[in-house]
């Protein structure tokens, strides 16, 4: 069994937020929802200021507070390290959201927008492949409507039901096909890495061994699967600048 981890190289990150966009397109998240979120920070007083960036996907904690508090087991941890939500079981109590110290959960406040449902097509149709070259158009990925993993639960994509909690899935639908998450694939400077950390010779294990790293809010004992390399954790001095519109 693999044990997936993500490495964020803060020395490389340039804060372009392409990963945020890739995530939105891949997972069809509603307006104002950013499963992958990139902080742009400013520190110090003018004129001695510095700026830094910090991508924040779900941390997929090994000791996840959200999994512990979920009253129905809709939020669960898989052996491959992914923390997922069963959208068909979630009752929408939002306990996971208040328990999470990282603020990665997003609730479906509105009715999901099914305006694109009519566009659902069989993208494996040869006629269509001749036209698309095998690329699945971004507006509605059919992979989100099938169940994933040996446990067979509806866990990928966004906007299935109203009143249900959603968050970053590490792109479970891609990982199960042997692909890396959309954000990792998109990053133009290779600041995001993804792989199996259980295999000691995998590139990600070697990378983690060879670099000094930290986890976000390590002191809480949540043991995140997202490892940060280079840079420094945000301090209380960090002020967020250039926020995208995030409130619905």
């Amino acid at each position: 069994m693999a044990r997936y981890k993500m490495v964020v190289d803060l020395d490389r990150c340039q804060g372009c937020r392409a990963c945020m966009e890739a995530c939105k397109v891949e997972n069809n998240t509603p307006a104002g929802v950013f499963w992958m979120y990139v902080f742009r920070f400013e520190q110090g007083e003018f004129p001695d200021t510095s700026i830094s960036f910090l991508p924040r996907p779900c941390q997929h904690c090994n000791n996840a507070p959200c999994v512990k508090v979920c009253p129905t087991g809709a939020r669960y941890k898989r052996e491959d390290g992914l923390v997922l939500t069963d959208f068909e079981r979630c009752i929408g109590c939002r306990y996971c959201e208040v328990a999470c110290p990282y603020g990665v959960n997003y609730f479906n406040w509105r009715k999901p927008d099914h305006a694109f449902d009519d566009y659902k097509m069989d993208f494996s149709d040869p006629d269509l492949v001749a036209f698309t070259g095998g690329v699945v158009p971004p507006y509605r990925n059919p992979d989100h409507d099938v169940k994933h993993g040996p446990e067979g639960r509806l866990t990928s994509g966004s906007g299935h039901f109203k009143g249900v909690m959603e968050k970053c899935t590490f792109c479970v639908h891609r990982v199960e096909k042997g692909l890396v998450p959309a954000c990792v694939d998109t990053c133009p400077v290779g600041a995001l890495r993804f792989g199996d950390a259980e295999d000691e010779n995998s590139p990600i294990s070697v990378f983690i061994r060879e670099h000094e790293s930290f986890q976000l809010l390590e002191e809480l004992g949540t043991d995140p699967s997202v490892i940060y390399v280079g840079g420094a954790p945000p301090s209380t001095e960090s002020r967020e600048i250039e926020r995208p519109m995030t409130r619905v």
Binding site: Y37, R94, V98, F107, K162, G163, V248
Partner: peptide, 20 residues
């Protein structure tokens, strides 16, 4: 009818609300 967007609650974190 509206979904819980009709309440004053919003997501924690980037959405800067209170979810309870």
């Amino acid at each position: 009818g509206q979904g819980m967007v009709a309440t004053g609650m919003r997501d924690l974190g980037a959405m800067q609300g209170a979810t309870w």
